[in-house]
Amino acid sequence: MNAIKEALKNVSDLWSLMVGLKVTGRYFREPQRTVRYPWKALSNTDTYKGHLELVGGMKDPFKPRCISCGMCALACPSNCLTVVKRKAPKPTPEEEKALAEAKERGEKPKDKTPKDPEKFIYDFSLCSLCGTCMENCPAGALQFSGNIYMAGYSRNDFLFDLVVKMRESEAASPAEPAAAPAATSEA
């Protein structure tokens, strides 16, 4: 008796197979969920955090805010940052004179060295995008770019200088053509 009951139950359970077919049949008719990617844009890229980039200053958006303090490099868990400070520019004769005068007066000479970094080497292949560098930057000079199209043929393509990157983006930007030559001559 029990065996028959069980057998009947098995048969009635076969209905679940039809229910499954109904589900797949329904989705077969419904529109697709995939984005045909290269032809259509993705919708979720705006909150993506890509590789690091330098933040420009208030006045000149293409002059890094970075003050070359090296906190980021110290904080980085993967040692992927190297900040190279600028050397003090060679003083002109007039400046030297003024410097000497100031010294005579007992004033402390003002450090004229520009604070922005000479080089800001960033190894994206090591970076784990944790954001520790940004959190520890006293000047707020780092941010994640929204660049999702980072691709390269070799490891070395991911080892780049953020200062150069910034200059490139400046050259690419059409706005303020007058500011561009000034920046390059500075460098």
Partner: peptide, 14 residues
């Protein structure tokens, strides 16, 4: 519920 219909109740899966 769709998960249940498609899979959880399916006799083969059970």
């Amino acid at each position: 519920p769709m998960y249940k219909d498609l899979v959880s109740d399916n006799i083969i899966l059970r």
